[in-house]
Write a protein that binds this DNA or RNA. Sequence first.
DNA 1: AAAGTTTATGCAACCGAGTTGCAAAGTTGT
DNA 2: ACAACTTTGCAACTCGGTTGCATAAACTTT
Lengths: 135, 135
Amino acid sequence: MKENESKLENRHIKPTAMRELVLKVLSDQSAAISLADLEQKFEKADKVTLYRTLKTFEENKLIHSIDDGTGSVKYALCKETCQCHPEDLHVHFLCTKCKQTYCLTDIPVPSVNLPTRFTLETINMVVKGICVNCI
Amino acid sequence: MKENESKLENRHIKPTAMRELVLKVLSDQSAAISLADLEQKFEKADKVTLYRTLKTFEENKLIHSIDDGTGSVKYALCKETCQCHPEDLHVHFLCTKCKQTYCLTDIPVPSVNLPTRFTLETINMVVKGICVNCI
DNA sequence: AAAGTTTATGCAACCGAGTTGCAAAGTTGT
DNA sequence: ACAACTTTGCAACTCGGTTGCATAAACTTT
């Protein structure tokens, strides 16, 4: 799994064993994952370590966080080129049945015309409904 | 303040003294307000009562809640005609400087083309940036 | 108007996600 | 091998939100 190691290095994150494991879990997910979810993937890892790992990943834009309104923040991998700028942002989808949160990476967040003298930094757009697996 | 009383009755909420007071506070706000904010507007009211009042208002679509990602849910009045359906939804704006959350009632939430067989229930769209008062 | 029923309010206490402090373990550089 | 720094793990805390239960207030029925 040299690939993950270089992914970490690309984002200037020191590749420790723990971090590679967490990255592996994140890579294997098709949906975004919460800290609690992540904790359950490991039998023995400490919540705080995972928490700080996610923070480090997020600070270095390896992952992005999604506040989907469920009360727990989810995390998902960024694209290689992502800088988490407004033009990089995509829509997220929360299935109200299976509670999975998906990155709709093909759907960019629509631009909005803000009132005059409002400046834009970022946008969080979460669509809720029923996903294809739950119909 | 008969007006607020009838606003409550229109939404089939029994107009108690407490509820009229809370509605008055909400009416006076230009920005959305959190439970903690609301609590501070009263010297003596109990948090739980305010909490349940907000819940009742929300269930009856007198107000809507906004999860702006700050960790505390904000509430703001709905329009008279609002049914909180997707077509009623508007964009919200969180100022990262003053932490105020505004309803941009003139800006409807843009429609998104979901992947096939994804059905839409609701959308939460929060734009973050600097508001006109904080430039 | 009194008794009974329902609804709203208030207090205490709990819950869970996120977070911090600090010490131990591991890593890096000389 | 030693010092300096970074990462990990444990304990404990914060804070927003929530529930249970008892009291108070408001309606109903006679």
